[in-house]
Design a binder for these strands. Structure first.
Lengths: 165, 165
DNA sequence: AAGAATTATATGAAAATTCATGTTTCTTGC
DNA sequence: GCAAGAAACATGAATTTTCATATAATTCTT
């Protein structure tokens, strides 16, 4: 009486795919995210920096997709990061609606450092997870993501009990 | 010019384990979470309900761990759900500090429905992902989570470049 | 059995997020 | 070339979330 599986039949949550994904993501990220905060960044800010390492000068909307942050939220985050001198915003000369975001030298220095740290953290994680299904996991996740992105454009699939009387 | 991998060397983000985990979680959840909102719940509320289906009457702290929600936030969410008649709070007679949370009949009805929907959604997801590494994924994730929970108690492991001059 | 320490939850103020919508700048069709 | 529409960002108010800490109820110490 007070086990993790109190119910008669097998528990739902710990076997539910979406829970497993969220829990794995959280558990795997916890350590490095703590490190990120140590360096004075919140996680969404780190995400922006990491994305800019790949695609410096991308526009806000692109960045939002890439960093998985909703646009208006990202705008506010970027403004803060601009104020702190981590990034710069320049409107695109070809298209005045677009705002292109760049790392400042200071921002790049920090981002470079954190990306290096992230790579080390990832290596340790994967290495310590060897023996089990360590190596495959990235492949599996990539496949899942691709599959999901595909079946998003492809409708007439998952319908989720339409609850219409 | 304007590819997803604009940089010379391979991009960091799309190959980074923590990104893959977060992206997979998001992509996989998107569809069902939209359904949850349709039913008038926000995602954290749904998580609470799902957890209570497994462990009705658990205390706030347990629920917080189980649902991966920070305690003070969970308290507020639960109070709202109480107000809406989805759950009830009773202090534990054995230990007056503890608050035990129960689904109301109404809450349970909704939770049952959504859990059923979730199971269907999960089945469709896994089925459509067959052929690829469909079946293994849950096992892999469980292994990763266990591994991480273990190496949390076991320190002297991952160190993340201590940046102390 | 009193006081200290600990555990469980609640609370409040500051900050972040969401959601709907405003503004500005292109695009397109006619 | 101009009006209508679309695209890209910004903004503001309402709501959530966070973080530190308060409060309350146990357990531990000696």
């Amino acid at each position: 009486m007070s086990n993790s599986a109190d119910s008669p039949n097998p528990p739902f949550v710990p076997n539910y795919l979406l829970y497993l994904l969220a829990a794995a993501s959280e558990a795997a990220s916890e350590h490095f995210h703590a490190h990120v905060r140590t360096r004075g960044l919140r996680v969404p800010e780190w995400r922006v920096m990491a994305c800019l390492i790949d695609t410096d000068g991308s526009m806000v909307t692109e960045l939002a997709r890439y960093a998985m942050i909703e646009q208006s939220r990202l705008t506010k985050i970027i403004i803060q990061m601009d104020t702190r001198g981590l990034v710069t915003r320049r409107s695109d000369p070809k298209d005045g609606r677009r705002v292109r975001v760049f790392l400042t030298p200071q921002g790049r220095a920090l981002a470079d450092e954190l990306v290096a740290d992230a790579k080390i953290d990832e290596q340790e994680l994967l290495r310590s997870f060897q023996g089990g299904q360590g190596p495959e996991i990235k492949q599996t996740l990539r496949a899942l993501i691709e599959h999901l992105e595909f079946s998003q454009s492809e409708p007439a699939q998952r319908k989720t009990a339409d609850a219409e009387s």
